[in-house]
Structures are given as C-alpha cells and as structure tokens.
Amino acid sequence: MQRFTELVVAAVLLAGLYATMAYGLGLIYGVLRVVNLNHGGIIMAGAYIGWLLHEKFGIDPYLSIPVVVAVSFVLGIAIYRGLVRHLPRGPAGAVQSLLLLFGVWLVLRNAAYLLFTGNDQTIRTEYSTRSLAAFGLAVSVNRVAVFGIAVLTLVVLHLFLTRTFTGKAIRAVAQNADSCTLVGVDVERIYSLTFGIGTALAGLAGLLGASLFSFNPSYGSGDLLKSFVIVVLGGLGSVMGTAVAALILALVEVFAILALPAYLTGAVGFVLLVLVLVLRPGGLFGQRVLG
C-alpha cells in the first residue's frame, strides 16, 4: 500500500509537467491546424537555456523561468513569421508544415550538438536532492515545485483564454478564422501569438524537465510523442481534458515499472500513442474546441 501511494503521488507530480508541454502542442494544433513537430526542439532549447544561465551566471533554474519563456516565445513567433506562415493552409499544408518543422528541429538539434556537445547534462542545485516528508511519504522538493509551477501556469492560461479579449479571440479563431476576419479580428496576429504561446509552454516544460532529468540534444523527442498522446487522449484545448490525459499517461508510465523490465518502460508511451490514435482518435471526451 505504501508503495502504491508513492507511485500514485509520483504520477500526479509528473502529470503537471506533462500537461504543460502537451497544452502547448494542443494549442498550436487547435488554432492553426499545424502539428508543431519542432515541439521537442523547443523543449530541448528551454532545457539548455536554463542550464546555461545556471552554469555561467549561477541563476537558479526557477528564477530563469521568465527568460526561458520570453526567449521561446520570441523564437516561436520568429518560426511562425519566417517559415510556417508561408505554407498553404488546410490539409495540403499539413504534411508540408510537418516536414518543415521537422527540418527546424534537425537544425536546432545540430546547433545544440555544436554548442554543447552530445554529452548528458543536468542542472544541479543545492536542493536537488532534498525532499519533503509528509504523511509518511518522502517527496523531492524539485518535483513538488515543478508540479506547483505547472498547475499555476495552466490556471493562468485558462483564465487568459476564457477571461481576456485576446484569449477569447484565440478561441474564436480556433472555431472559425473566416468569421473572425469579418468581425475585425487580426487573424494573422492571433496565429503568431498562439504559436508563440505554444512554444513558450514548450520552453517552460523543457526548463522544468531539466531540473528533474538529465538531457542532451536529442532531449524532447520522447516528450513530443508524450505530448501528442495527451493531446489526442484529452481532446483539443480543454485544460481539464489535458490534465486528465496527462495523469493517465503518467500513471501508465509509472506503473509500467512494476510490470515490465526497465528498458521497455520507454516503449510504453509509444505503444499507448499508437493504441490511442487507433482506438480513440477523437479523444476520450470527443473533439472539443478551446476553452
């Protein structure tokens, strides 16, 4: 029972991080109908920016959140304005944008190899190994902090999308871009803003992930697939759906450790991805628009 509770707690804490990165991917797909295959690249970039700030300037990873979010936001807007915008919209452009963003990912990965070599890196702070004890459970401080930041981010994002004019405009564009143009919403601006927010979430998730796990230039490819599982499972844009789906994935992954040899646990996410795509391509809760 003790072990069971530990695993459930571990899964819940992990789910916060998963939800953050998946929401970024889902937001971009929901509004632009573009699968951001570069999601993993931005996650990796976020991890390295946090690491660089910590190594060179001794800035605590949690304090570098604003920097990472700002940089990945700008990077996302640059990618949208410079590349994605020039592709045709709709189904014909779907595969093209997939290949294009894949190319961007290859470039980012190669840049990281050149700058930081292919070695595994970690962000190590003095509280990295510290843990909290509550109800007879020991939980790492870092994991609790990551979970808290992730939940906070999702709440803020939910409020932004439902309570502000711009947020409502984003949801409206997701429903029908043409009608938005008619009522005077600058759709192009909303597109680049959404792409920026989506990549900013990826960058944040990368930074948070880097404070828990080691990473290298290929970091993020597994997270891209996990995000995709969650988006498909949870449906588009609903914060609750994303959170539940993230929890399901985290539970499956964590409990797979009990049933499977260690080397196979990495394959669980991929198998789940294929199963989900085949059995429930509309998501557990049906396809929903943002909000």
């Binding site: 590349l83 020039h86 592709l87 093209q96 290949l99 294009l100 894949f102 190319g103 961007v104 990912w105 290859l106 470039v107 990965r109 190669n110 840049a111 190899y113 050149l114």
Partner: peptide
C-alpha cells in the same frame, strides 16, 4: 544533420 534540416526547410518553403 543540420544541413539536412536546412535542405528540408528550403525545399518545402
């Protein structure tokens, strides 16, 4: 790897 990526971007674009 990066050159392949650039090539992919240029071709698609």
């Amino acid at each position: 790897l990066g050159i392949y990526g650039l090539l992919l971007i240029v071709v698609i674009l």
